[in-house]
Design a binder for these strands. Structure first.
Lengths: 284, 284
DNA sequence: TCATGTATCTGACTTTAGTCAGGTATATCC
DNA sequence: GGATATACCTGACTAAAGTCAGATACATGA
């Protein structure tokens, strides 16, 4: 991996050079680029660029404004915020960056045969997925937090989708049992969007895992079992040595995962009408 | 591919952070690192780092010298040149960089299962090979050039190896037929080392391809057919519409490649005792 | 031996990237 | 309505990265 980095960066790292042809310094070009990609407020930009200093960003925006590439306006819904947008000239610049970058990529791929290009694409896609998966961090959030709500929204939407029923709006409102002191809720996010989530709570004197969901695009990346281990550890912290969960026969991947993780099938322990399978695991 | 760059650099690009913990600025740390990797002269360093300004490098070396990490000495074989080497302290620093970088890589891979790590490794190795292959440039050299001699050395060594005979030193001395005006010799180099070579000359009124060799580590990367196309184009330039070549039955990969490239088997056209197969291609 | 070229160095300079300490206007909570 | 927090801004600063114009010592070919 380190070998790859050295060699790759040496050859392809020149990607950044594409920013240089624009006459803009790298940092400023990155800002322009992110605006074109959809950043709408200064704050948004700062987050996308990895938490840059606000003064620094402000100054670069001033530069871009004076060159006539971006226009700024106050946000009507919050007067402290300012909206950023590309002007027509800015859009031209952005297209230019895109084109130059595209050209570079083509130049590199040119000597390869179609089959090799396909292989390279596959390899990079695989590497990308795995690196993204590896850099995902699981963190505890309040189930009322917007990001948690978003994740539960996905969860219920998918359940509704797969099982042919829908839940009302109250469905994923607040569930106090998933909050301290008797429960916890976790999400795994990639680039700010939730890709997996799940909670643990107390039920009938044991731990219970609830609302576990993994983004379909991320299944098979080991995220589910990672999250599961996390939830089990949390259940232990909450004082339970046994965790249970229910699921449904249609979710065969999930069932396989539970079995591989050491869960054993038990009899029905609740009256959830949608559940068909019930599992339990004793932790040491 | 561009998508990969953005996402990969954002996550792993922090690789460079490993240089930061050393208390040395990035550029200076890179110099230290390259010396540890084997750079021996200032010039060597400048080339490895992509043509940095000589004054800039000189200044950084002064810094490293004053910190006691590198020792410099004049080159006895050329008094203008200066040799660089790590001191004991410098070596310690270098090991530290290595260790830190290794740690980072481990930290990243930690959340992955063994299977995923293997997959990532494979994917990166494939991507690396292909990117290296894509960035190789084929260039014409005089067959007496040291790099050409090196390539022919590999070629004869391998022939000797595979066929159980050896050639004398005169074997790969100068072959005027592979030079202008009736011939040409090409090498493909990666990081300064030849990875493939081949020549074209006039023989019996047609073009003939000679001494084609691809580094065993690079076979299957399409380098052979790329070089072959190059040689054919050169033969055309030299005024031939037909190229021939001889090879030996043991070289089945090569034979397959010639056939895929449109070569047809013909009768023996020379008295090369080591050749068993003879091919020809008519170009339009 | 002289002209020319090469390898490295020094000094003076610029641009980029980034930090830190406030300041102003607006929003929000009690 | 007042305290506090937030979003953005300005000004003053630093360190890193890099450029450019010579200077110096040595090498090389005619």
């Amino acid at each position: 991996m380190r070998k790859f980095n050295m060699s790759y960066v040496r050859r392809v790292g020149a990607l950044e050079d594409s920013f240089l042809g624009s006459g803009l310094p790298y940092g400023t070009a990155r800002i322009l680029y992110e605006i074109g990609l959809g950043a709408e407020t200064v704050q948004d930009l700062r987050i996308r660029l990895g938490g840059l200093d606000s003064g620094y960003v402000s100054r670069m925006l001033r530069t871009l404004e004076s060159k006539g590439y971006v226009a700024m306006d106050r946000d009507p819904s919050d007067g402290r915020r300012r909206l950023v947008a590309l002007t027509e000239d800015g859009l031209k610049q952005w297209d230019d960056l895109e084109r130059r970058s595209e050209e570079r990529a083509h130049l590199l791929l040119d000597p390869l045969t179609q089959r090799q290009r396909d292989r390279l694409n596959d390899a990079l896609a695989t590497a990308d997925l795995l690196v993204r998966a590896a850099t995902i961090i699981i963190e505890q959030v309040d189930p009322r937090d917007p990001i948690a709500q978003m994740a539960m929204g996905h969860y219920f939407a998918e359940i509704g989708d797969r099982f042919g029923f829908t839940v009302g709006d109250e469905g994923f409102g607040d569930d106090p049992s998933l909050r301290a002191p008797h429960g916890a809720f976790f999400i795994a996010a990639s680039d700010g969007a939730p890709v997996a989530s799940g909670g643990v709570r107390e039920f009938d004197g044991t731990g219970e895992i609830k609302r576990m969901w993994v983004d379909p695009a991320w299944r098979g990346a080991g995220l589910g079992s990672r999250l599961l281990r996390h939830l089990e550890a949390e259940a232990l912290k909450l004082g339970h040595r046994v965790v249970r969960l229910d699921t449904r026969d249609v979710l065969s991947e999930a069932i396989g995962m539970y079995e591989r993780a050491g869960y054993e099938r038990i009899d029905r322990y609740n009256d959830n009408p949608h559940a068909t399978h019930f599992f339990q695991k004793a932790m040491s």
